[in-house]
Design a protein around this nucleic acid. Structure first.
Lengths: 154, 154
DNA sequence: GTATATGCAAAGCATTTGCATTAAA
DNA sequence: TTTAATGCAAATGCTTTGCATATAC
């Protein structure tokens, strides 16, 4: 079994980009970047902490938060706060996409922007705002939670 | 000057509806309902507390939170958590609408669903979810924050 | 009279911050 | 060597909760 060369390349690319912007490459930051890579990833800070600890036991939660905030303000990671519960971090900044959120368990899924890309705020409703982006969150109940509800009722 | 009869009628209607559902009408609950009525209202729990205190000085923040949560679970008030900061409470549940959010100061504005009502998630992307609703939040900077940024830079 | 809501203060959770120590450049 | 990142623990902000008292019904 070989390592995952594609993933690794993506991480190195990201790390290089950040390095070019004057980022100091520490073991902690590399590990956070590693954990947060891939598609359809929507981890909470605590999730990231847990996975990062497996790779680097001495990493601290504060550092995870600091690093996540840096990645967010550098535009490398998206911060999503849908409904209650902790924020989730989404590394998929390249492809515009929206989310499907389970109101029961908080799970998030990416969805393609199909059919939503024509969506724009009419000038008459901009109220003088400088528009930056649109968040579209479809809310519902995921298959797991539907199944649980069904068996609980039975 | 007379009182606002329209507002008052709306509150009484709401209160009656809740009473019918077995709600005990206390001074505190009435005051929260009063404070939260009207259009384009997006108060935080603390805002509600402040205004409620003016009408009923002995009300407590805990009661405000309890009452807000009850109103939300009864479907009389919408809970909006856009971005950082505290949740906001929106009594406008009758007319479907979306929001314009200032990423700088957290201000929210209602916008009509014009042009967004055709928005639906294609079946191919529902991933087995039972869909409940869609939240659309346009993010940007409000006129006030744009002005502040301009004068700070100048 | 009885069940339920209130107020208070304490606890909870997610997140941030201050500061001495450590490590990248 | 210098400057910045780390870890820890304490602090913060928002929200919830437990329990004795007060109140609507």
């Amino acid at each position: 079994m070989s390592a995952q060369p594609i993933e690794e390349a993506a991480i190195n690319e990201l790390v290089q980009r950040l390095r070019d912007r004057g980022w100091r490459l520490t073991a902690q930051r590399r590990v956070v970047a590693e954990v947060l890579s891939g598609e359809h990833v929507h981890l909470t800070a605590d999730d990231v902490y847990g996975r990062a600890q497996r790779l680097l036991p001495e990493i601290s939660l504060a550092t995870v938060y600091n690093t996540l905030n840096e990645l967010v303000s550098m535009g490398e990671v998206l911060e999503i706060s849908a409904g209650d519960g902790p924020k989730r971090y989404d590394p998929n900044t390249a492809a515009a996409h929206h989310h499907l959120y389970c109101v029961e368990c908080g799970t998030l899924r990416d969805i393609n922007p199909e059919g939503t890309d024509g969506l724009a705020l009419p000038a008459s409703q901009q109220h003088g705002f400088e528009l930056l982006d649109v968040d579209i969150v479809f809310r519902g109940r995921c298959p797991d939670c539907r199944a649980t509800a069904r068996s609980a009722t039975a």
